[in-house]
C-alpha cells in the first residue's frame, strides 16, 4: 500500500541553516572550542569559591600545609648556643630570647633577634646564625668594663665607649679600674684611659678623674691634690706635670692644685698654711736681706 505519511522536506529550516552557518564561522567555532570551556570552568570555580566558608577552609588548609612544612624536624631549632659571653650575659640573652624552643626556623627573625641582643648594654656586637642540627648560634662580643663612673645614683661600670654596663656593687670589686666622676665623663672614657696610662708614675697616689664642665679632666690625687688639665693636649699637660714633679718633687709639696689650663702659664695653688709659711719664710728672708 502507498504510505500515507507525506514526504519530509529535505530542505533545512531557516533556523537550522543559520545555525549551521554559524557553526561554520571560524571565530564562533574557536569561541565554542576555547571560550566556552574556559568560561564554564571559570564560572564554576568562581561560584564555588564565592562562598566565604569555603574560602576560609581553603585558607586554613593552606596555612596548615605551610605549618606542616615549617615544623618538619629539618627546619626546627632546638638549641640556643651563646658563644663569647660571660655566664651572666648568656643568662641574660637566654632570658630575653622571645621564643620557646624548639621553634621553627621560619618563625625566627634573625635580624630582629640580633637587634634585641645588641640592645643589651653589655653586648658590643652579636652574630646570629642557624647551624645544622637545629642549633641557633649567637656569637657575642661582650663589652669590657674600662672604668668606674661615680654618679648621683651610685657607681657604675662603663666601657671604653662610655656605655654604662652595670652598677658596681663595691669599689673594691674592681681595683684595677680607674674611677671617673662628673657629668659627661662617659663621653670621654677613652681619653681618661689614656690619661691613666700617662699617669702611671702617680699610680699609687691616683684617686680618679673628674670631668669638669663636660669638656676637660681633673686628675684627683690623694691628699686632696688636683691637676687641672686643659681641654686639648691633656695627656701632654699631664706628662709635663709628672716631669715637673719628678724633677722638683712638686706634688710632694703642700700644693692643693696644679693648674695646667693655660699651657704657657702653669699655676700652682698652695694650701693656706703653706701660703702662710711661704710668706713667713719670705719675710724672714727679706728681713735678713734688709738687715
Amino acid at each position: 500500500m502507498r504510505p500515507v505519511t507525506p514526504r519530509t522536506d529535505p530542505a533545512p529550516s531557516r533556523l537550522r541553516y543559520r545555525l549551521q552557518r554559524l557553526m561554520l564561522t571560524p571565530l564562533f567555532r574557536g569561541l565554542l572550542r576555547v571560550g566556552l570551556p574556559f568560561g564554564l570552568c571559570f564560572a564554576i570555580a568562581a561560584g564555588y569559591l564565592s562562598q566565604p566558608e569555603r574560602q576560609e577552609a581553603m585558607a586554613l588548609a593552606l596555612i596548615d600545609l605551610r605549618r606542616q612544612i615549617e615544623t618538619r624536624p629539618e627546619f626546627m631549632v632546638d638549641l640556643l648556643a651563646v658563644e663569647g659571653a660571660s655566664d651572666p650575659l648568656a643568662g641574660e640573652i637566654r632570658e630575653i630570647f622571645p621564643h620557646a624552643l624548639p621553634v621553627s626556623s621560619f618563625d625566627l627573625d634573625l635580624d630582629r633577634l640580633r637587634g634585641m641582643i645588641e640592645a643589651l648594654p653589655a653586648v658590643r656586637h652579636a652574630d646570629l646564625r642557624i647551624k645544622q642540627g637545629g642549633v641557633l648560634e649567637a656569637k657575642v662580643a661582650e663589652r669590657q668594663p674600662a672604668a668606674l663612673w661615680r654618679r648621683a645614683e651610685g657607681v657604675a661600670l662603663v666601657d671604653r665607649e662610655g656605655v654604662v654596663l652595670d652598677p658596681a656593687a663595691r669599689r673594691t670589686a674592681h681595683p684595677d679600674l680607674p674611677m671617673l666622676a662628673g657629668e659627661g665623663a662617659d663621653a670621654a672614657v677613652a681619653e681618661a684611659l689614656r690619661l691613666r696610662q700617662a699617669a702611671a708614675p702617680l699610680r699609687a697616689r691616683l684617686k680618679g678623674f673628674v670631668r669638669v664642665g663636660e669638656r676637660r679632666w681633673d686628675v684627683v690625687l690623694d691628699r686632696g691634690q688636683r691637676i687641672l688639665l686643659p681641654e686639648r693636649a691633656a695627656v701632654r699637660a699631664l706628662e709635663r706635670v709628672i716631669a715637673l714633679s719628678q724633677a722638683q718633687d712638686m706634688l710632694a709639696r703642700d700644693v692643693v692644685a696644679i693648674d695646667m689650663r693655660l699651657a704657657d702659664r702653669p699655676t700652682v695653688r698652695m694650701t693656706p698654711h703653706a701660703l702662710k709659711e711661704w710668706r713667713r719664710v719670705r719675710k724672714i728672708s727679706l728681713e735678713a736681706a734688709d738687715g
Binding site: 522536506d9 529535505p10 530542505a11 533545512p12 531557516r14 541553516y17 549551521q20 552557518r21 561554520l24 564561522t25 571560524p26
Partner: peptide, 18 residues
C-alpha cells in the same frame, strides 16, 4: 529559497567552510 538552502548547506558541509 528552500532548495537553494539545501544545496548551499550541503556544499558548505562538504567544504567545512562558511
Amino acid at each position: 529559497e528552500r532548495a537553494i538552502r539545501t544545496a548551499v548547506q550541503a556544499a558548505q558541509k562538504m567544504a567545512g567552510l562558511r
